[in-house]
Simulated scan of single mutants.
Amino acid sequence: MNWLRVHIVLERIDPLPVEQALVKLGAISIEFSDAADNPILEPAPGETPLWPTLCLRALFDRAIDDTTIQIAVAGAINAAPMPAMRFEEVANQDWIESWKQTLQPMRFGSDLWVCPTGTACPEPGGTVIELDPGLAFGTGSHPTTALCLDWLANCDNHTGTVLDYGCGSGILSIAALVLGAKRVLGVDLDEQALQATRENAGRNHVTKRLDVVRPESADKTLKFDRIVANILSGTLIELATELQTFCHTGTRIALSGILTNQAESVTTAYKSWVKFELPIERGDWALLSGTVIAT
């Protein structure tokens, strides 16, 4: 069965009524993207902002006709000018399996490998994380995650305890565990992230040494030997005091999700209790790492 995809350039038309009309019409999926070039790098907490000029893409069963969609959009925008619309037929396929075919094993440090499920590690005896893209938000391909994986892989001491704050897919928690961590605590606000972390940990046989909780459930009396937080600069600044409660003198810490031009402001929030090394950069992104000198 084929599908019908419609592209609508909404520009400054209110997207909500259009989205609601298309969902009512039977849209299987709806995606918003930037119709210009105005990136949203860091929304404020609690906000889900959209770009000032929008493009909407919706996917329908091919049985629906173009005119029906056009009528629904016209009814949703009231007196606004009719937006530009383009229709295309999309061949049916297993989207997740198609995406998996494009993924290849990736190496971090000297011998840490992230391999999609069912893919053999290119290096016999390498330390392997098996990750199913269908269950994960991160696979190591984004520079911020890659920087953290390199940092974990290159740590002098892989034992001890690790806090993964903002654990997402669990890739960093699992990396710490397969490298030899005694115990890891993964923390995330998103229940889906916690579920993905548990399932990916099960796939890698490390669940017995992993705990995953929401922030409010984390035991503030715990102290960790290493802390990794791959979030965003504004959130990292807000979390400085909370992360300090999980540290002892000598804790190694890595902060990622930071654009290079944001590194100074994040450093300022932590420098009273962390002695930072030089930032490690990859493209537009930076990782800040250092040692806790005061708690």
Results as ranks from 00 to 15, higher is better:
M82N: 05
E281A: 11
V162D: 01
T221Y: 08
L16V: 13
I96P: 06
F60H: 00
P43F: 00
T127N: 11
A269W: 14
T145L: 07
W285Y: 06
L25E: 05
C167R: 01
P17Y: 13
D66Y: 02
A36G: 13
H248K: 14
L4W: 01
S265N: 09
L25D: 05
L22G: 08
T241S: 11
T267H: 12
T68G: 07
K223V: 07
R86M: 09
I8L: 10
A286L: 02
Q192N: 06
E19K: 14
P49D: 03
K208P: 01
P124W: 05
L135F: 15
D156K: 14
I13L: 13
G126N: 08
T245Q: 15
I40G: 08
V292D: 02
Q262M: 07
L54Y: 13
E123Q: 15
G202K: 11
E264P: 01
L50A: 06
T245G: 08
R62F: 13
G250L: 06
L172H: 08
I96V: 14
R282C: 10
E97W: 12
T260N: 11
C55F: 07
V213M: 05
T159Q: 12
Q20A: 15
W273L: 08
A21F: 01
W273M: 08
V9R: 11
I227K: 04
L179I: 02
G234W: 14
E42M: 04
I71G: 04
D211G: 09
Q104Y: 08
E281T: 15
A76V: 04
S33L: 12
D219E: 05
W3K: 02
P83W: 01
P43Y: 01
V178F: 03
D61V: 12
A218D: 07
E242C: 10
W151F: 14
D188Q: 02
V178A: 04
L25I: 11
L243D: 04
T241L: 10
L222Y: 09
G290M: 01
I293A: 00
D61T: 15
R203Q: 05
A254T: 01
L177S: 00
Q104M: 07
A72G: 05
T295Q: 13
C121Y: 00
L135K: 15
P49V: 05
L243C: 09
S169Y: 09
N204W: 07
L210D: 05
S141Q: 12
L259S: 05
D66F: 02
C148W: 02
T127M: 08
L10Y: 09
V228W: 05
E277L: 11
L131N: 07
A136Y: 09
R107A: 07
A229N: 05
A146R: 11
C121T: 00
A63Q: 14
A294E: 10
I13C: 09
W113G: 01
L232T: 14
T251K: 01
A120I: 10
A120M: 06
L288F: 11
T48C: 03
V73M: 06
N157Y: 10
E42L: 03
